[in-house]
């Protein structure tokens, strides 16, 4: 009976328990992974703070993530019950067409997403219990503007290699709850 007591208590809790190896959210470093893509699907930045399991090589992983978001964008636009004008699923969208989504959650992680009208996509993966991160993504976009876009040595469309940006980013994500 003692053996089952523990698991019954776990099942009673409304939110699923995070698997071992997931950041707890209280450890002070809640962010797991950040991706930054540009409009052409180039991964400008991949930053990892906590990722025990990796199955694909980096290039495949980035492409899969970009493809997922691209499809989700198309899907959410097609699903949108409030707009009449929409083409078939997968038809290229004009700027301003369709709606956008900002996060989804599984039982082990939460993925938050922001896309600027210029096509910069920020993806942040965190603990599933994390609250709304739209503000945080906006802040990271501001960091990108200050330390990457305004750096004259940075060539637009190439991977970001800025220590200053990384340092500021690391510092900021430590504060996320």
């Amino acid at each position: 009976m003692q053996f089952f007591g523990g698991s019954a208590a776990a099942e009673a809790s409304p939110a699923p328990a995070a698997p071992p190896g997931t950041a707890t959210g209280l450890a002070g470093n809640n962010a797991n992974v950040l991706y930054v893509f540009n409009r052409n699907g180039v991964c400008l930045l991949y930053r990892e703070w906590h990722r025990p399991l990796r199955t694909l090589d980096a290039a495949q992983d980035h492409k899969l993530m970009f493809g997922l978001l691209f499809s989700l964008r198309s899907f959410t636009a097609k699903m949108d019950p409030t707009s009449v004008e929409k083409g078939n699923l997968g038809v290229p969208l004009l700027p301003g067409q369709g709606c956008s989504f900002h996060s989804f959650r599984t039982n082990t992680y939460k993925l938050s997403f922001m896309e600027s009208p210029s096509g910069i996509k920020l993806i942040l993966v965190t603990h599933p219990k994390t609250s709304d991160l739209r503000e945080a993504l906006r802040y990271i976009y501001n960091l990108y503007v200050e330390y990457v876009v305004k750096n004259p040595l940075y060539v637009p469309g190439t991977p970001i290699k800025s220590e200053l940006f990384n340092t500021n980013l690391d510092q900021y994500v430590k504060t996320l709850i």
């Binding site: 700027p95 301003g96 600027s116 210029s118 976009y141 876009v149 305004k150 637009p156």
Partner: peptide, 19 residues
């Protein structure tokens, strides 16, 4: 212009224009 747009979007909170 191709750089300035990001600063503009970040600071102004303007979203996609409808037309």
């Amino acid at each position: 212009g191709i750089r300035l747009i990001d600063e503009f979007l970040a600071k102004s909170n303007v979203s996609r224009c409808a037309d």
